[in-house]
Amino acid sequence: MSDVTARVADSTGNWVDTRAPVWSRPYLRLARYDRPIGSWLLLMPCWWSAAIAAGVAHDIRQLPLVIVLFFIGAFVMRGAGCTWNDITDRDLDGMVERTRSRPIPAGQVTVPQALAFLVAQALVGLMVLLQFNRFAILTGIASLLIVAIYPFMKRITWWPQVVLGLAFSWGAPMGFAVTLGRIDPAAVILYAGSIAWVIGYDTIYAHQDAEDDALIGVKSTARLFGARTHRALVILYGLAVVLIGVAMALAGVRWAGWIGLAAFAVHLVWQIRRLDTSDPALCLRIFKSNRDAGLLLFAGLLVDAVLRAIM
């Protein structure tokens, strides 16, 4: 199989396809380094939480290091999660047009090779986690159960996006655990708000596969909401903004953070107005734009943390 035909269907022209050593490309695709948007989305609640917690502490001396470690950890552990997902979903992926070109169903990587790669990524993630305090280490380890069960949820519930939200939002308590050595009420509410955000954006993502999912019996909120998706997004995104706002208020966030939240909210409104669920390419573009939404909020929270530390 040539490397051109080995490319994943919805990912072409990226650095993995054009610059990475040929032998490494199937593994990089397995970890989704050809499509890093998921890593960015996993990272956003980590950075939000770290910035809010630094503001609570009025101390940003450790924040740059925490930001870097969260960045490495998010990319490595998202890669490990995707590898696990592809191992468990290898038969289903072979039946879906968009996913049948993934490395395992396409025969580029065997299951034992994928398992070895999974272990290697997990060890790197553990090395990152060990840089934190004991409470944060235990908090991070606690997320593994959710990550392990997520791939099976679409077989048994219409709400697999909720479980994804539980996993992808785990950074919300992690920032507090790392910086303060505890999980404040603000972190719990931030976690809930992030879960609502994840359910919303992953519903948009799932609309790409709604027809194939219906044929093979895979459940999702995209299929559940159907023509009511816009209404559901108004509720989910609205809940996300309100809950994140409550968390910010509890943490004493000031004006810069609220500007970030306002920009985040405006971006979510734009997504809902722009969305056409019958257009898979547009669904993918809008889904990916959530990185920008998350960065807008983080920018505001980061400025707030800096101002609280120096004033």
Rank of each mutant, 00 (worst) to 15 (best):
Q62A: 11
I141D: 10
L130R: 14
L130P: 13
V96I: 14
Q113K: 01
F71K: 12
V147M: 07
T99M: 12
A80F: 00
R32S: 00
L41M: 03
I137A: 00
P36W: 01
V119Y: 05
V163K: 11
T88M: 15
W47N: 05
A114V: 03
R78H: 02
L126F: 12
L28C: 04
A142I: 02
P112N: 10
K154I: 12
R155H: 15
I87D: 04
T18Q: 12
K154E: 12
L145E: 08
I52G: 04
H58I: 08
I67P: 03
D91Y: 14
A54V: 01
I67K: 08
H58D: 13
H58Q: 15
A116V: 01
T83D: 07
D89G: 05
V96G: 09
W40Q: 02
T83N: 02
V124G: 05
R155L: 12
F71E: 12
R32I: 02
V162R: 11
R35A: 03
R134N: 09
L115F: 05
L118M: 09
I156K: 13
A51E: 04
L69E: 14
K154S: 09
V128T: 11
F135Q: 06
D59G: 10
S24K: 05
A80G: 03
V76H: 03
L129D: 06
R35H: 11
F70C: 14
S49V: 06
V22W: 05
D34E: 12
P45S: 04
D86M: 08
V111G: 04
I141M: 04
F132K: 00
W158E: 09
A74P: 02
Q121E: 10
A53Q: 13
G140T: 06
G79D: 01
T99Q: 07
R19P: 01
L123Q: 02
F75D: 04
W84T: 07
D34P: 01
N85F: 09
C82M: 04
A80N: 08
T83L: 08
G81V: 04
V56C: 10
L65R: 15
